[in-house]
């Protein structure tokens, strides 16, 4: 009897640390990367997505937010389709993440690439990008209404420059056309900076550049923004004087572009959690705050089911607009 007691006591003594250890590792069992993290950019070097990814990567290493380095890789083929398909193909690999813009929706819809954002794991929405309606500063237009009235007089004569084809710039052009009953000739270019310069050189009549793409030309007095294409003004010192579409033209209109992060499909909850936390910490750094305001972005961190819900809504709107503009892949 006594012996048995001793044995059980001994077992307890021996078991205790084991239990402790298992408890300890249980709480610290949060997943961490064991290999370098591949950070895919579904766009070429130098563009908006590229700059942002290359900005995030050093923040992660500076604040030691991940135990392994982040390797930035461009996979730009087919308007980003190559990058998306790569992540889709690396199911269950927790060491892959991808930065995306609205090409997440537009590329598969316009090209018929067998891909949908549900083929990846949504991690977080980092920010939203504004659009403005820009004209050359030497033109007499003061409001969007004045400009669009002129466009209405000669359908198809006014040129709208934008980035890529069947992507956000063209979608916004379609929105404008439908809201105001006008007709533009849309001219696609390779990148936003190029588009802004074409406007300075008066090769096109207007653009819907992002704030960051045209800010320098604006401040140099070569371009002027007629309106912010959103229901609210941009809440940043430099930008808050630009009227909204409603104020400038009388018609409410809004289009904001996603800047979000996804991971490979089929990763575990813990793995997803790691990336959510890591990116949360990125958006809390002072560098990030400065980047947001320098580039005229809307700080809009969103994650979890809310993010998924937002994505669903955004996809619906995008598809709708593209269908109206006849931009969907023709069957």
């Amino acid at each position: 009897m006594k012996k048995a007691f001793w044995i059980s006591k001994l077992t307890l003594i021996f078991l205790f640390p084991v239990v402790l250890i298992s408890l300890y590792t249980g709480t610290a069992n949060a997943w961490e990367p064991t290999k370098p993290i591949e950070f895919i950019i579904p766009a070429g070097a130098g563009g908006g997505a590229d700059v942002m990814a290359r900005f995030i990567a050093p923040i992660i290493s500076k604040y030691k937010l991940a135990p392994k380095p982040v390797i930035v890789i461009n996979k730009s083929g087919g308007a980003g389709a190559e990058g998306f398909m790569y992540v889709k193909g690396n199911a269950k690999d927790p060491h892959v993440m991808i930065i995306t813009l609205d090409n997440l929706f537009t590329t598969p819809l316009a090209t018929g690439v067998p891909f949908n954002w549900r083929d990846m794991t949504p991690v977080a929405r980092l920010a939203l990008d504004y659009f403005n309606l820009w004209v050359n500063a030497e033109t007499p237009y003061k409001t969007a209404k004045e400009y669009l009235d002129d466009v209405k007089k000669t359908p198809g004569k006014f040129l709208m420059g934008g980035t890529g084809s069947a992507q956000e710039d063209q979608i916004i052009t379609v929105m404008l056309e439908q809201a105001f009953g006008v007709k533009f000739s849309y001219v696609p270019f390779k990148g936003g900076g190029e588009v802004a310069v074409q406007l300075v050189g008066k090769h096109v009549n207007s653009t819907v550049n992002n704030p960051a793409e045209a800010v320098s030309q604006w401040r140099a007095g070569r371009l002027k923004p007629l309106a912010t294409i959103d229901t609210e003004r941009i809440n940043l010192p430099l930008w808050k004087d630009i009227p909204t579409m409603k104020e400038s033209s009388g018609v409410d209109m809004s289009y904001l572009m996603l800047r979000g992060i996804f991971a490979a499909p089929g990763i575990t909850k813990e793995q997803q959690e790691f990336y959510v936390n890591m990116l949360k910490k990125v958006t809390e750094t002072p560098e990030w705050q400065k980047y947001i305001s320098d580039n005229g972005l809307k700080s809009a961190y969103l994650t979890g089911p809310d993010y998924v819900k937002w994505l669903e809504e955004k996809e619906r709107i995008t598809k709708d607009l593209m269908a109206k503009g006849n931009l969907l892949k023709k069957k």
């Binding site: 070429g44 070097a45 130098g46 563009g47 590229d50 700059v51 290359r54 900005f55 990148g191 900076g193 960051a212 800010v215 320098s216 030309q217 401040r219 140099a220 070569r222 400065k290 980047y291 320098d294 580039n295």
Partner: peptide
């Protein structure tokens, strides 16, 4: 130059006439 320009934007310098 496109990549260098990306680098400038990280420094908060917007390339263009105001630079």
């Amino acid at each position: 130059m496109a990549v260098i320009m990306g680098g400038l934007m990280i420094f908060g310098l917007t390339p263009g006439p105001m630079l």
